[in-house]
Nucleic acid binder design. Structure first.
Lengths: 214, 214, 214, 214
DNA sequence: AATGAATGAGCGTTCATTCAT
DNA sequence: AATGAATGAACGCTCATTCAT
């Protein structure tokens, strides 16, 4: 009855064991180092050695966790997608009008960027000649959902009848490029940016000007 | 009669000497090879050897013209800017209203992209996971002129009173991202894209929808 | 009464304990894996990892048994020698004439090679360009015994007065090289090979030719 | 008249140019280094770096000359074959009887080994557990010619009717193994070894014993 | 005693860059 | 000015070996 083990049974194996712990830590360390280095140098310029150098681990250790830099990159991108896409999805579901939908999209994206400045800002600091954008397959897939959504909205008459490919491109372009400005501001005002972008897309420049008038 | 140039005709003084000629040719050859290779492999994966191999020149010769692949890349980008910026500038001058100005900007950019598909399209095809964008210092400087212009327009009351930084970011974002779609279309309709972008920025989605209605 | 060993009888002392058992098993497993891998890849190309991978043991465990792959190799070769040398020795003792002695040597060797085709044949198949021969110190020691024996035989007048070093070299060379042909034949006829070799050494080519005549 | 250049005209471009010279030297250096290292460590154990380390050249330089250690190995073996095979061939042609033919084979081989002690002795010094024999494809091809020759001799009745495969194997074995002893002697007597081997194969042990009797 | 992750030396190879020709 | 071989740093990766668990 008073079997002590029965108590622990209710909870899943709590002690991860030192081994599992350090394994998890190392994996994390590599991924975080990867984030920084990819941001700083770009994917192409980054070497596996750059990454492990930053972790302080031995060179060989890298290969206990990933087969190549590509695999780390994938892992990072999967994590990114895991963070943003669910939020995009839930916004989408919640939206009751096209405006709400659009606003939701912008908001989530800007919010993500601002709260991941850790990634994003370093990314921009990379003054170099080229930029790695976050539009990896996973992220693109996220935006693809946006495009598909948009198509449905147009088909069902919720959104106005427009060239969906161009519209989604424009939305994505606005989102990315405005993000750059947003993170440079202190403090970054996500609401404001969201408002600007949403109004621009819906009603154009004139409407924005009106809004900002007293 | 005493045309002084006729005299120089006998001596190849003003015409570039053979030396200068081949020098210029080699430089050109390297730059063109660079364009192809960067487009094919992406900046990071491209090696100096890839470039000179394509020219047929000796490896050492490269360094008579450029110090590194970065320098070639800069040179290419400078050339790109040199091609677009004057056109952007002349459009700017010609514009008699804000709408004309905006339309001019989009048109020149889309037109450039379409007629440089050789670069652009391959560039995009290149790598799924990441992108080299053309926003090098020079190109960015070009867009900076746009921003400055925009500021003037807003200050002088020609353009509506809006957050100029966000607006220029949005315009640039739209331009870049729509370019991708534009070059994929067959045939690419620069006018249509220009129209879409201009109307979106000026009057928003609703206006576009109205336009496309019969 | 106070026989201390009687006490240990109650405990499984004389039978190998479970510990000793698995220890022996592991050692065996490593050696067998080594045999296969060395045969398949050749000594130089074989890695310790290849060996332990085949055993299913952990990599660290290897070092409880051997210090390096060289040591495993030595162990294997020692075992090989252990299998052949006693037989060579007993043949030597049994021999009543020089011919019998010589015939015995060849027979044992050829027989061994044929019945260890598992090692031998794969070993040869291995690499065209080079060969690992089984003439490790141990094996060589075996042949050294042959040489010493030969010396005694010559000294005592049983064998003809010849250059013993050359003769033993020739015998060994014949044995090794003919082995290669022997194992290729289907079925390999040990008697025939033994006969050929013995007659060649004793009476030369002419004698062999006579034998094969009807 | 006394134009000095006209004299040099008659001879082909004598100056190889410093460039070609060093190129040839480097190639030689790599091959020689390869000879030593392969002999010392065996093919499998040898690394490209071992080879270039011995030349004093930079690591990258190796790859201006060979794609891999295999290629160096091939080059070495080709050279070896180039040295021995023509001599074997001419001996073969000159031979007027089977005995002459056989004697010629042994002589050329022993002579080669003795005069290439530079290779051969170091090879043996490699006290290790394994040996690389010179029986690479090229060398084997040389011996294959011997076997083919032998077959013809047997078919035409010049040589006695025997198992050709076994006989050539025996000859090769005797040649290799006796070489080891031969090079250890001081001075190495090629004639003597040739005589021993030839007589053994032709008439067997008994004949040798008779010869050495006063 | 067994495990298997961590380690870092070392490997094959490529590359940007230099420099004698 | 052009050449292309030499250089050696650096890369991706594997391996023998160690050591905390």
């Amino acid at each position: 009855m008073a079997d002590p083990s029965s108590q622990t049974d209710t909870l899943p194996a709590q002690k991860p064991g030192k081994r599992e712990q350090t394994k998890a830590n190392n994996r994390r360390a590599i991924i975080e180092a990867g984030r920084h280095v990819f941001a700083e140098l770009g994917y192409g310029e980054t070497t596996v050695r750059d990454i492990i150098r930053k972790t302080g681990l031995a060179s060989g250790t890298f290969y206990n966790y990933f087969k190549s830099k590509e695999e780390v990159f994938q892992a990072i991108m999967d994590e990114n997608a895991l963070r943003v896409r669910p939020r995009l999805r839930s916004e989408r579901i919640r939206a009751k009008s096209f405006e709400e939908w659009l606003r939701g999209m912008f908001f989530v994206f800007f919010d993500y960027v601002v709260n991941d400045q850790h990634n994003y800002a370093i990314m921009r600091r990379n003054s170099g000649a080229l930029r790695v954008r976050m539009d990896t397959p996973e992220i693109l897939a996220g935006f693809d959902e946006l495009r598909v959504d948009l198509e449905k909205a147009v088909a069902s008459g919720i959104a106005p009848q427009v060239d969906v490919a161009y519209l989604s491109a424009a939305i994505i372009g606005i989102a990315f490029e405005m993000s750059d400005r947003l993170v440079m501001r202190d403090p970054p005002d996500v609401e404001e940016a969201t408002d600007f972008a949403t109004t621009l897309v819906l009603n154009g420049l004139g409407a924005i000007a009106e809004k900002s008038r007293p």
